[in-house]
Design a protein around this nucleic acid. Structure first.
Length: 857
RNA sequence: GCCGGGUUGGCGGAAUGGUAGACGCUGUGGCCUCAAAAGCCAUUGUCCGAAAGGGCGUGUGGGUUCGAGUCCCACACCCGGCACCA
């Protein structure tokens, strides 16, 4: 800064100089390291760790600013805080960048990590930098592989063939959770199906606990996340009902053998179905409406389910094959289109309705899903709209089993009502309401052995194989003699081979397969020739356990230290975006439960409390390159400084609400910080002065602000907390200029209070203030201010006097004023007298010291 | 369709059943200045009124209450999730 500008702007707060100055000091002080010596109560605050694509952006600026308020508040409260930092550094972006630049994905990855690390330091997040980890380090993914092997050893990781989601763009399979609206969550390409043998984690083993344990999260997790998980798990109560199978002209049991040729055409299907040539004796369906069983008039199996091929009669084979091919060509997107016309083909067989012996023609159709329930349904067109549409198209009979109301003019009736047409010589549901009829029919089916009450889930097992390079190799060796052989723990990590650039070009199978030397190994069991599994794991596996690694991030003898994890975990407060509601959060919950059952953890939920910040948008839309409405964090910081950006994020509104940057005023934030900074230079009292002799009115305001700020931070109502601090700043300003003056100790007390509270949000300004107030660094750990009880009670409060519920006057009264005194003073008010006029007072509501209401005749 | 959340000035948002609009942004007027920027002061829901003062106001319609943005019932709209899920 030149002499000239010094003269022109003598009292201007130079944010960038202040930033540079304190960043150096803090780096040396390193004030936010966990102590972990048992001297203080421990708290674990976790931000969802960033993915290193480019530099930090506005979204990061929001979430880390919000979480940092909590972390810094905990530091001020004297807790031993674990606030770790790390990077979710495996993943497709790095790989695609590497192909484009003809280099190794690690180059792009670690360069970006360094960039983000530097930005984090400047952004002054209170991280414990000694925790730093990267999931792409062999020292980390060694233990991701260990986790895989533990799951494998406990029967929770297995390989199966199925029709899986395939992204043609990324050339890899995807988990169900990564398919959003039929499109790849990452690149937006329409997902297709492929028949592949892939590794899965058995999430479904935990389905009831994933659901039930959410009870304990209620109130501490956002409702919408719990709802999303509940929806995703998709629990529905109903029944399994067994149907016998009969041919066109024959009774059950006497089946024709099918031509052998059929099975040769579909060798990949044998694993999921009974041995070829055999016919199932019965087919089971899942239904949530067993009460409508008497109304079943036909039967549908998913066209792409093995069951359909198995049931199909020889004479219908040709038609069925044609239909199945047609269905396979339909993309997920088209299939999901609402009101899509029903298609299907008769399979040449019938099932027998167990309650009335009716023969139901069996169809294959695409509207029945292969991977939900049993892949087969009993069709009740009278009570199900989809079945109705199919029945109309194929001219099938429709029977109502629930009486619709008289004014019902729809097609299928899905509402409540008394059962009709639902009786045989052993059971009579007629007249029962839906719930009663369900119970009755289930009891009947169970007793008859043709069905049972059951619960069905939408949740599928987690598909973890990926045909891409930049992830942890699956630590399995395939041996012709021994099958799937786990890599011995002492041989971990299975380090990625050195591939780069064009080697990584996606081609539908894993790039690892081309690293011949890497692939071909000895079987650890028999020593014979064997091959490594060439797939890598989904990056969500890396992040499903990282919170366990942070207490001991550099331990090369174990994934995590059981004792350290016992001390720090579960995470007390997790902060991150709602986009992970059913991906990362569900997987982490699963892994936690699995590790708990293996005896490693003494808790079953990883994250005690969860805060979802909103999204930062610009002009009402998410920032994106294609919309060209991106706001650059670096530019914002260059213009307004770190503190003003942080303050704007935190003051914008409730943390969970979206922030439209176009509606925000970082300039206003900066002005406030300048006012605050100026305030700290206006004291004329000494740093050691006793506050007790200070101006009582201002002192009361200061202490009320402390009390409120405490409560507001804990309730995560940071925007209101800042409003209270602003009020205190305004009051202190007024006190200096036109009140008790700059020498009064109360003014110093107010300024110091502002500095400490503001250290949660605007650390640079707070530190600079603290120094100007005559104190050594760092304000971040001086301790949360204490309130004095005697200063929290007001001398006077405003009492509102209403007439007929309308405010007609205000009184300044003592908080301890009596009923009689308050009533007397209220009625003596001129404005109140005028409002009453000539009317008669019927009733007086007197609630000292807040309100008096005069009720007239 | 099912589940969850919401609807308050020009804008972001405040309000244990008791002063609706705190705090801030924007706008307007003024001070300072040769001028501008910065800063400071006043004002800023709406209608009537010169003013004093008064009427109306928290998506809509009912209800409970001395008193409702807040509680209850019904509805509309918006956002998010799930969805040919049987």
């Amino acid at each position: 800064m030149t002499e000239q500008t010094q003269v022109e702007r003598p009292t201007t707060y130079d944010v960038h100089a202040v930033q540079d100055k304190w960043l150096k000091v803090w780096t040396e002080l390193d004030p936010f390291r966990r102590i972990d010596d048992g001297s203080r109560e421990r708290r674990y605050l976790l931000d969802m760790f960033p993915y290193p694509s480019g530099d930090l952006h506005m979204g990061h600026a929001e979430v880390f600013a919000l979480a940092d308020v909590i972390a810094r508040y905990w530091f001020q409260q004297g807790y031993d805080v674990l606030h770790p930092v790390g990077w979710d550094s495996f993943g497709l972006n790095a790989e695609n960048a590497a192909i484009k630049r003809n280099e190794h994905p690690a180059e792009w990855t670690y360069k970006n990590i360094e960039k983000q690390a530097e930005s984090f330091r400047r952004y002054a997040i209170s991280f414990d930098w000694s925790t730093r980890l990267h999931t792409s380090d062999p020292g980390y993914y060694k233990w991701t592989q260990w986790l895989f092997l533990r799951l494998f050893a406990n029967g929770l990781a297995y390989r199966k063939a199925s029709a899986v989601n395939w992204c043609p763009q990324d050339q890899t399979v995807l988990a169900n959770e990564q398919v959003v609206g039929g499109k790849c969550e990452r690149c937006g390409t329409e997902v297709t199906k492929r028949e592949l043998t892939q590794w899965h984690f058995k999430v479904t083993d935990f389905v009831d606990r994933l659901l039930d344990d959410m009870e304990a999260l209620k109130g501490n997790w956002p409702d919408r996340v719990l709802t999303m998980q509940r929806n995703w798990i998709g629990r529905s109560e109903g029944a399994h009902v067994d149907f016998r199978i009969v041919g066109v002209e024959e009774e059950a049991g006497s089946r024709q053998a099918r031509p052998a040729a059929e099975d040769e055409e579909r060798p990949e299907r044998v694993d999921a179905t009974p041995a070829s040539g055999e016919r199932p004796e019965k087919v089971t369906v899942f239904t949530t409406r067993p009460d409508t069983l008497f109304g079943a008039t036909f039967f549908v199996v998913a066209a792409d389910a093995p069951l359909a091929a198995q049931l199909c009669a020889a004479e219908q084979r040709e038609q069925f094959d044609a239909y199945r091919e047609q269905v396979a060509r339909v993309t997920e997107i088209d299939r999901l289109t609402e009101g899509r016309e029903k298609t299907g083909v008769f399979l040449g067989v019938f099932t027998v309705n167990p309650v009335n012996g009716e023969r139901l023609p069996v169809y294959a159709a695409e509207y029945v899903l292969a991977d939900y329930g049993t892949g087969a349904i009993m069709a009740v067109p009278g009570q199900d709209q989809r079945d109705w549409a199919f029945a109309k198209k194929f001219d099938l009979p429709i029977v109502r089993t629930v009486q619709p109301p008289d004014d019902f003019d729809g097609e299928a009736y899905t509402g409540e009502g008394p059962a009709i047409n639902s009786a045989n010589d052993q059971i009579d549901l007629n007249g029962m309401d839906v719930d009663a009829a369900k119970s009755a029919i289930i009891a009947y089916l169970e007793q008859a052995g043709t069905g049972r009450g059951t619960v069905n889930y939408r949740l599928r097992d987690w598909l973890v194989s990926r045909q891409r390079f930049w992830g942890p190799p699956i630590p399995i060796i395939h041996c012709e003699n021994c099958g799937e052989v786990p890599v011995p723990e002492e041989s971990l990590p299975v380090v990625l081979p050195d591939l780069r650039g064009a080697d990584l070009q996606p081609k539908g199978t894993s790039p690892l397969g081309s690293a011949t030397e890497w692939v071909n190994v000895e079987c650890p069991k028999c020593g014979g020739p064997a091959q490594r599994d060439t797939d890598t794991m989904d990056t969500f596996v890396d992040s499903s356990w990282y919170f366990l690694r942070y207490p001991t991030p550099n331990d090369d003898t174990q994934a995590f230290d059981v004792e350290a994890v016992r001390r720090w975990c579960p995470v007390d407060q997790y902060v991150g975006g709602v986009e992970h509601a059913i991906l990362h959060l569900l997987y982490s919950r699963f892994v936690t439960k699995a590790l708990h059952d293996m005896g490693y953890l003494d808790f079953v939920e990883p994250f005690t409390a969860l805060l979802n910040q909103g999204e930062v948008t610009n002009q009402g839309r998410g920032m994106s390159k294609s919309l060209d409405n991106g706001v650059d964090l670096g530019e914002q910081i260059a213009e307004y400084g770190v503190d003003a950006v942080r303050l704007t994020m935190v003051f914008a509104g409730p943390p969970e609400d979206d922030i439209d940057w176009a509606d925000m005023s970082p300039g206003g934030s900066l002005r406030f910080l300048q006012r605050v900074w100026r305030l700290s230079g206006d004291m004329t009292s000494e740093p050691e002065v006793e506050f007790s002799g200070g101006d009582v009115t201002l002192r009361k305001m200061t202490h009320r602000t402390i009390a409120e700020a405490t409560h507001l931070v804990e309730a995560h109502r940071f925007n209101v907390m800042i409003a209270r601090v602003m009020e205190l700043v305004n009051a202190a300003r007024k006190a200096i200029d036109t009140g008790c003056g700059p020498a009064d100790p109360a003014v110093r007390e107010a300024a110091e209070t502002v500095a400490i509270i503001l250290s949660l949000v605007a650390p640079y300004t707070a530190e600079e203030m603290w120094e100007r107030l005559g104190h050594p660094a760092t304000v971040a750990k001086v301790g949360w201010p204490r309130t004095e009880e005697s200063l929290l009670t007001a001398d006077e409060v405003t009492c509102v006097v209403q007439v007929q519920g309308k405010v007609r006057g205000k009184l300044q009264v003592s908080p301890s004023i009596s009923d009689n005194e308050l009533q007397r003073r209220a009625l003596a008010e001129l404005s109140v007298q005028r409002a009453i006029g000539s009317s008669t007072v019927r009733k007086l509501i007197v609630k000292p010291p807040r309100v008096v209401n005069v009720v007239l005749e």
